[in-house]
Write a protein that binds this DNA or RNA. Structure first.
Lengths: 337, 337
DNA sequence: TTGAAAGCGCTAACAA
DNA sequence: TTGTTAGCGCTTTCAA
């Protein structure tokens, strides 16, 4: 038999009355806290189930001054990379009783501020947020919150508390090394319109630095606005090669536009990787299965999520210097000779 | 100057003392509620900002018995379709003061139960969840919650409260109509291993029903486990055609495996859409830019998110029969002749 | 092992 | 327009 629709939400007191056990003891049973006799325990659980009681965490959180939430603040969900990071986070949080709550900023610092304010107002046990660049107000809020704060994805900068990620500067530089090592010399770059995307900017900086150190200039760049897609990659690749037909390598700021470029170039009958080499960034496996595998860098998304979660959960200690730098890994693919 | 790290979290009282205004009035200012003189208002805001005060929603929610959260429960984030749904939801919630909170079930009914229990314990103002199939206990919880519950994606079934989605039965049947209309007769199906994916199952049922009505049998099916990817699509397509070389059409349960099949078939030099036609499902735009555009059905993800959110937010009334059926839309592409 | 009292930080309702 | 009082539903603390 289904209990009828309640007019008033159920409270501990209802369970207490139904079971003839004090509220306090009901509370203990429902949280598996303290010693309760098996008999009492059974009575309480039966009553709670019969009523369909769901504890009120609002009240519980207020009374205990603790809330089992971890705020996770990321720029976007449609980016392919963040679902992986989230996967790592929730896998690692799973056995801790902590729950991730996700907020999305759409790469806007003002929006990030709002999202942080909203999340902090729930008094979470920790914060994981993408990037090291935040507004003054955001930093102030995080510092004042008095909880673990882990900035993820990037380690090129000054963390508020702890940073877990890769050095994008280094990822760019290492890719330059592989490209130069393969003998390419007329190199172009295709990426999102910068200011908001700090990590892409740092990769490009590292990339250019390493090229420069070898005396090779970056011959051309093509920027775009808005989301990444195969179609964007096609269009930009066509455009940059129209402008600079002599290019023999294209470094893309992500795999998706890189794959678009790859598809377009193959359609044009361009010899890849002979005449033209290509590389992307991220190492998304969604694209496995294309006719040719794009060279790229594994950005260690899953590991970043895991390590960040471990620190927030107190499974790992915060490192002295507050920085956990993972190694970006070059994935050769078929598009570098 | 930065305020020093607080030992004790700030409360309204701190703002009250710092500004010389009563707690109640501070509360009013911070919520823009009731009439407050501009002068008082200014005093309060200045003090709050100087201290770096962030209101405590736990306490607020308990006192007001209202919480501006909407629980959104979906099977997966890596599915490409759910980020779109979420986009629709948060776009529509944006000006309502309501905040979506996302929970992920990984297609497990038991996991769904846990997630729902956890979310309901925060006493959200409404619930949006994917699908019409839930455990007995989940249904009971939702019915007992006394808040708007919108089940999304699917309308083939009995909603707990309200359903917003497309009829997958109809989507399958309509696709069959287009395929038959184009003259294909030896048709195969490729999809995920069923039980957990009710919507794919319903599409297939509608598809077969419509084929059957035309006296055309479904010649072959190929199921797979685990996530979708281009690689999976290649592999399954190769396998089904090895088994049934005479097939002239393949209907895939999603665009990603369909695209994998498309890429593989082109590599084999198969004449598409002449010798072999292909269609997927969802209408994900991530894949725009492939050499050939896969025929598919737009599952109306964004609209579903928007309509669901409007109902939860009270912008739209709940329809009498509790069902908002959107029309799945055929997108022809280049893979049906 | 169980229970009683106090109070978490805020807001509803009412009073001034 | 501002302030006072009570209490939201739970857990902490202490006592039995």
């Amino acid at each position: 038999m289904t209990p009828s629709r309640p007019r008033r939400p159920l409270t501990l007191r209802d369970v207490s009355m139904a079971s003839g056990v004090s509220e306090m003891t009901v509370s203990r049973v429902l949280r598996n806290r303290g010693d309760v006799s098996p008999a009492t325990r059974e009575k309480v659980l039966t009553a709670a189930r019969a009523l369909g009681y769901v504890p009120n965490k609002i009240a519980g959180g207020l009374a205990s001054q603790r809330v089992n939430l971890v705020a996770v603040v990321i720029p976007s969900l449609s980016n392919l990379v963040f679902p992986d990071v989230l996967g790592g986070i929730s896998a690692e949080l799973d056995d801790t009783g902590l729950q991730p709550v996700v907020g999305v900023t759409h790469y806007g610092p003002a929006r990030e501020e709002t999202v942080l304010y909203d999340m902090l107002s729930w008094r979470p046990s920790g914060v994981i947020l993408a990037g090291l660049e935040h507004s003054r107000a955001s930093r102030a809020m995080l510092e004042a919150a008095g909880i673990p704060v882990v900035e993820i994805m990037d380690v090129d900068g000054d963390p508020i508390d702890t940073a877990v990620g890769i050095s994008h500067e280094r990822a760019g530089a290492e890719m330059a090394g592989h490209i130069l090592g393969a003998g390419y010399r007329r190199i172009g770059f295709i990426g999102t319109h910068m200011p908001e995307d700090h990590r892409a900017r740092k990769r490009l900086a590292g990339f250019e630095r390493a090229l420069g150190a070898a005396g090779v200039p970056l011959v051309a760049r093509e920027y775009y606005q808005g989301g990444s897609s195969l179609a964007k990659g096609r269009e930009l690749t066509e455009r940059i090669l129209a402008r600079e037909p002599g290019l023999d390598f294209l470094y893309y700021s992500n795999d998706l536009i890189g794959a678009g470029g790859l598809i377009w170039a193959r359609e044009q009958g361009i010899d890849i990787p002979g005449k033209l080499g290509l590389a992307g960034f991220n190492g998304v496996d969604l694209l496995d299965g294309l006719p040719m595998r794009l060279a790229t860098t594994d950005a260690r998304r899953l590991d970043i999520g895991r390590r960040a979660a471990r620190i927030v959960a107190g499974k790992d200690p915060r490192p002295e210097d507050g920085i956990v730098a993972l190694a970006p890994t070059f994935l050769p693919g078929d598009t570098i000779r």
